[in-house]
Design a protein around this nucleic acid. Structure first.
Lengths: 331, 331
DNA sequence: CAAAACGATGTAACCGCTTGCACAGTGGGT
DNA sequence: ACCCACTGTGCAAGCGGTTACATCGTTTTG
């Protein structure tokens, strides 16, 4: 791989000039520029990004941690984040957590100093670790908060209250919430949103959980219990749990949208794949991806304070066919 | 962030010594080592990876390109690859292609010089581009070949012939293959495997496709055609297409495993989520992930030639319930 | 006991690029 | 004619590490 010096030698100019041609071309006269370009061409020279990073003190890379690469909700976030990062002149390095919280910290530390900033989706590390990290490199959180670190939150309240209302409208007087692991902010928020929504609507809200993180099997397992207690309306922590639930109910010959109602959370592409298609609360993870990147880039550009606090993104119910309709009241 | 020099000053040694403490600790006497460590501790010093990369000429990072982050098959590959990379002392940077082949090259070029090697899953770029890339940095391919570049291939033959046999055993005398996009090696291989398997078994094989890359809707759309022509046995390019197909058939009141048979490809977690659960050909993408990393690391360690050619990983049929059984013969 | 070998440390060049500063040449303004 | 921008370029000192080589005590060995 050719270096700046070789190009400089071949073009008969100094290394400074070559450097300028590649970083501020307008600062160099058109004919030297041309000379340099042909020399660079001939040697197929490309500036070494590592050297540039060292000299500049910035890498033009961004890190993006997703807690579980298998979870379909994160796909859209990664995609949009990557696009936006490119638009703003950065490359995105995604790292995949795998549920194990211990590894997560190692993973992130390994990349923290090689990027100009980090987006962490629902990290499970401790606040202390997070603060330490934020001292090393700018951090933007998604669906998690820590002090006044900038964050993007997918509000659960509006979606949850719509879900509960929807179920109540259909004639359900009792609803069960099947909760996820407590270490997730989303879970904690959904839980309180659920109880307040039920209270507001004047229906009985029962809570089950927390589910283990393999949501499908957890949902399937929970089904027996729910069938036994005669539950007919469920809001599940996420779509996967809802799908598991539907499978479990199916084993008892019960079909969602006919014999009982179930609402998921996330609106992953799973929802259109089930039968019946799953009513769910839409989470705009695609927006969350670009918003997080924008926030991060703004911090890097000094446009935003690195402790700007959270931005909230609305959620809303998407009605499909896993919930009974009002004219088909159930017990 | 503290630097080597500051640590050296505080510990009263030279920078060389500090450097050695962090790269070859055994080369320095225990008491100086201790002095350096306490100084480093006090300043919370960590070697700057960028500087180290520049000096060393290696980054200890690996790049991993997945063509479509939303496709559930790639999750396991990413996970296992990441684990293995860490085991072998590398960090893995994942880049997500998004179907658009043009972006793919940009994406990869942006990271190519920041990593010691690249794993590319089913890249869509031209052979020329690929060769150029391989000249810049070691490359390992997955489900793609290009000259003698090292590659990991998930063989389609065995799985496909098992699938065809399974359908024939169930009494089907005609089978349709619903193919994916031709630019994928897997598609081309599955297609030939299909025709030879049908020939070998003496049943009629029809081919449909190629499907557009949104497989679910493509599958759904294909269903009408298939129903009209009275097709009762289908092998789909992948699980997503199979799911779409099942949805399309369902609209005609037809149920897989009872009225007709369908076999998917990939064995993604989708298969256990459908009703009925999908019979499919298992692709060991988890193995492919670690194998690719191993291959790449071996090349980097000089243990393998950078043009070692492909390694094949076997596939096999996983029978679930979307195929009719032998004692329930269909028309 | 001198020579050789060795282990621990320091010196300084280097990895490839950026950039503040100095310098020369140009063209106006007075 | 002179001074002063102003533009285009080069010099050289970094960025934060690594490492070949030199140095210097301390054994070991014939």
């Amino acid at each position: 791989m050719a270096t700046l010096r070789e190009v400089a030698a071949r073009a008969g100019v100094s290394t400074a000039t070559v450097s300028r041609v590649f970083s501020r071309p307008e600062a160099v006269s058109p004919d030297t520029r041309a000379k340099v370009f042909t020399a660079a061409e001939a040697l197929s020279f490309t500036p070494n990004p590592t050297a540039r990073s060292l000299a500049l003190g910035r890498t033009h890379n961004l890190g993006f941690l997703v807690p579980d690469i298998r979870n379909p909700v994160f796909g859209p976030a990664v995609e949009t984040a990557q696009d936006r990062a490119r638009e703003r002149g950065y490359s995105l390095f995604v790292a995949a957590g795998e549920g194990r919280s211990a590894d997560e910290l190692d993973l992130v530390r390994a990349i923290a100093r090689q990027v100009d900033g980090l987006v962490l989706i629902a990290p499970r590390m401790s606040d202390t670790d997070l603060e330490d990290l934020a001292r090393v490199t700018p951090v933007v959180l998604v669906n998690h908060t820590c002090g006044e670190l900038p964050a993007v939150l997918l509000t659960s309240d509006d979606g949850m209250s719509q879900a509960v209302d929807h179920l109540a409208d259909a004639g359900h007087t009792a609803v069960t919430y099947l909760g996820g692991p407590d270490y997730w902010l989303a879970q904690r928020r959904r839980l309180t949103a659920f109880t307040t929504a039920c209270a507001a609507r004047g229906i009985t809200g029962t809570v089950l959980g927390p589910l283990e993180p393999d949501f499908v099997v957890a949902g399937r397992n929970a089904a027996d219990e729910l069938v036994r207690t005669g539950t007919t309306a469920v809001v599940a922590y996420n779509d996967q749990a809802a799908v598991g639930l539907m499978q479990g109910f199916a084993e008892h010959g019960l079909r969602a949208g006919r014999d009982y109602s179930v609402v998921g959370f996330d609106d992953s592409w799973l929802c259109e794949m089930t039968s019946p298609p799953l009513t769910t609360v839409h989470l705009a993870f695609d927006d969350a991806g670009v918003t997080a990147i924008d926030l991060l880039c703004d911090v890097l550009d000094g446009k935003t304070a690195p402790d700007a606090g959270p931005v909230e993104l609305a959620t809303h119910l998407v009605v499909r066919s896993s919930t009974v309709t009002a004219d088909l009241p159930v017990g």
